[in-house]
Computed example of a mutant assay.
Amino acid sequence: MPGPPACCLTPAPHGRAPEPAIHRARGAPCPHVPRSASSSAAPAPSASAARSPTRLAARIEAAGGEPVLLDLAEIQLPLLDEALPPASGVRTQPHSIAWAERITALDAVVFVTPDYNAGYPAALKNAIDYLKAEWVGLPAVVVSYGWAGGAAANAQLSAVLRYIGLDLQGDGVRMAFEQGDFDESMRLVDAAAFVARSEDDLRTAVADLVAAGEAAERAAA
């Protein structure tokens, strides 16, 4: 029997739509039986790194989870447009209601994010800010990528997620670019090799997340 579903949430990279980056964890569909979600946006010079969530989905499945990918480029949430704050739980817009339902179905989330100027993408912040209660207590892990592993974006996103009440597992994963990763046009040469360098850290983070999602699911039963 598959583990909880996992979901990936991905902000669109400049000039190119990324693959889904939210994995969700819980016994039902959408980015584990538990499900886990992740979100990421790729900068134009390295847009192929946005494929990381797809590779993460395979790791979630191997750990016993049910991966689900949520692509922010496809979901296209507008800038938060509800009259009342998210903490009120009152939603009137169809896209707000649909987004809340997707996240409520998760058992865990993997947030996959690039580093843009020492921060994470606005599309991801907007998607997070739409909700409040749906995030509280949800097991999560942050996977960042960029020069220095996207450390600044990872720290910034982690601080926000802790503030709103997600249950962050560990310190996350930082996937660092190296000069030889790019060709003369600044395109990532081998995305699989880039992700493989962080294989051990990713496997551990995903296994811990799926276990946390399963524990949360049992506690809620």
Rank of each mutant, 00 (worst) to 15 (best):
P2R: 13
C7K: 06
C8H: 06
A12P: 04
A12Y: 06
P13C: 01
P13S: 10
P13K: 07
P13M: 09
P20R: 15
A25P: 03
C30Q: 06
P31Y: 11
V33S: 08
P34G: 15
R35E: 02
S38A: 15
A42Y: 08
P43F: 09
P43C: 04
P43A: 14
P43H: 06
A44I: 05
A44Q: 14
P45Y: 15
A47N: 11
S48I: 07
A49N: 10
S52P: 00
P53W: 14
L56M: 13
L56E: 12
A57Q: 03
I60V: 12
E61S: 08
A62W: 05
G64C: 05
G64R: 04
G65F: 04
E66R: 15
A73E: 13
P78I: 09
E82Q: 15
E82V: 10
E82T: 12
A83K: 08
A83S: 13
L84A: 12
L84H: 10
L84D: 10
L84K: 10
P85Q: 08
P86I: 06
T92L: 13
P94Y: 05
I97Q: 07
W99K: 00
R102F: 08
L106S: 09
P114D: 12
P114L: 03
N117L: 07
A123D: 08
A123K: 01
I128K: 03
D129S: 06
D129C: 01
Y130T: 03
L131C: 06
K132L: 12
A133L: 07
E134R: 12
W135C: 04
V136N: 10
G137I: 01
L138N: 01
P139E: 00
V142N: 07
V142G: 06
V143C: 13
S144Q: 12
G146V: 04
W147R: 07
A148Q: 15
G150K: 05
A151D: 14
A152N: 07
A153T: 03
A153R: 08
A153L: 04
N154H: 15
N154A: 15
Q156C: 03
Q156W: 04
A159N: 12
V160E: 13
R162L: 14
L166Y: 04
L166C: 11
L168G: 00
G170T: 06
G170V: 04
D171I: 02
G172I: 00
G180L: 08
D181I: 04
F182I: 02
E184P: 00
S185Q: 09
R187I: 01
L188K: 02
L188T: 02
V189W: 01
D190Y: 04
D190L: 00
A193P: 00
A193S: 08
F194R: 02
V195Y: 14
V195F: 15
A196T: 07
R197H: 10
S198C: 12
D200L: 12
T204A: 14
T204V: 10
A205K: 05
A207S: 11
D208F: 02
L209N: 03
V210T: 08
A212N: 05
E214M: 08
A216F: 01
A216S: 14
E217Y: 14
R218K: 14
A219R: 14
A221W: 07
